[in-house]
């Protein structure tokens, strides 16, 4: 049996290090085959609903948002007052916009940093063969996701209320506090509550993502490691984590992007308060677009576009990592 050494400067053996005879047979990419005849019609028929919806609900609103952002427009009546880049100038000088941006980034980073590791741990536990009641735990962890965000916000508003909320009542009954603690009275504690409630709600979804990734790790690798006497910790750190790393990058990206859209919880839990200290960008846009009369669509559109640019830069940086991850995924076959 011949062994293959990796090329100088690389730790891992790749396909290019093997001789053509040793390489795995190339997969034929059928997706690039030309579609002919009636199949072309069917392709269009099946794609048409999606394309129509995509044009109507993604491309058109995007173009409209760009257009509106250059006007001083209330959303009612003709779009006449061309404002040039005035809206952008005002937003860049608006301290509340920057508070919102910072809060959104803090929220996105914190939720991602907390929810991904703990949902991964839960997923690893729930994919262990020895664990009983997996279905029960999966349902328990997934259940908060089916509660509407508005309802979750209301539930926690009442739970955390310092007057008669359950949490404060327990703390008082245990003699841990004399007076109820108002978590919404301080920017940082209010933000932390937003983060924790968001994690509580979305935890199950990320756990499912991780479970899907874990189920793609070939079982024979674990069997081989067991024969070699590897501990569970070694299996985790030497087999599981390296193999799911490409998917982890994608899950992280999803987690960040989803967290940047936070809105419903802010509306129901803090309404941007105390004062304006927990404003996030979606709430800022909403308040400018609908929070006063006359509406200020132009300003809100400009804010939405500016934040999209910021988010795009962040996501693009992640995109590079995702591309690398996709390559690794193909290599690992997961």
């Amino acid at each position: 049996m011949t062994t293959i050494a990796p090329a100088p400067g690389r730790e891992r053996v790749t396909e290019s290090d093997r001789s053509p005879a040793q390489r795995a047979p190339e997969r034929v990419d059928h997706s690039r085959e030309r579609v002919r005849g009636l199949d072309r019609v069917w392709l269009l028929v099946f794609l048409a609903p999606f394309l129509l919806l995509y044009l109507g609900f993604t491309i058109w609103p995007l173009i409209a948002t760009i257009y509106y952002s250059f006007f001083d427009w209330s959303g009612i009546g003709p779009i006449e007052n061309f404002a040039g880049v005035d809206n952008y100038g005002s937003i860049l000088a608006d301290p509340l916009f920057w508070v919102s941006v910072v809060n959104t980034l803090i929220f996105a980073l914190l939720t991602t940093v907390i929810k991904l590791p703990i949902s991964l741990v839960a997923a690893i536990l729930l994919t262990r063969k020895w664990l009983r009641g997996k279905r029960f735990f999966r349902t328990v962890f997934f259940a908060p996701l089916i509660i509407p965000v508005a309802m979750a916000g209301l539930i926690f508003t009442y739970l955390l209320n310092p007057s008669n909320g359950a949490l404060n009542a327990i703390l008082r009954d245990l003699g841990l506090v004399d007076e109820g603690f108002d978590v919404f009275a301080n920017r940082w504690s209010a933000l932390l509550v937003l983060v924790l409630v968001s994690i509580w709600q979305i935890f199950g979804q990320y756990m499912i993502y991780w479970m899907a990734a874990l189920q793609n790790v070939p079982e024979e690798l674990y069997e081989a490691a067991a024969i070699d006497g590897a501990s569970e910790w070694k299996k985790l750190t030497r087999i599981t984590l390296p193999i799911i790393k490409p998917v982890a990058v994608i899950i992280t990206l999803l987690g960040l992007v989803n967290a940047m859209h936070v809105f419903g919880l802010v509306v129901t839990l803090t309404a941007g308060g105390p004062g304006t200290s927990t404003y996030v960008v979606s709430y800022f846009i909403y308040q400018n677009a609908f929070g006063r009369v006359p509406f200020d669509y132009g300003y809100a559109s400009a804010a939405a576009l500016l934040f999209s640019v910021i988010a795009f830069v962040l996501v693009s940086a992640q995109g590079l990592a995702v591309r690398r991850a996709q390559r690794l995924r193909k290599e690992y076959g997961v």
């Binding site: 009275a185 105390p274 004062g275 304006t276 200290s277 929070g291 006063r292 009369v293």
Partner: peptide, 25 residues
Amino acid sequence: LTKTPDAEWEAMNEALVSGQPLASV
């Protein structure tokens, strides 16, 4: 008034929970 219609209430709310004087907020 319309640019920031709730600014006074937001300032009061912030001053109330932070204990800051309303004059500065």
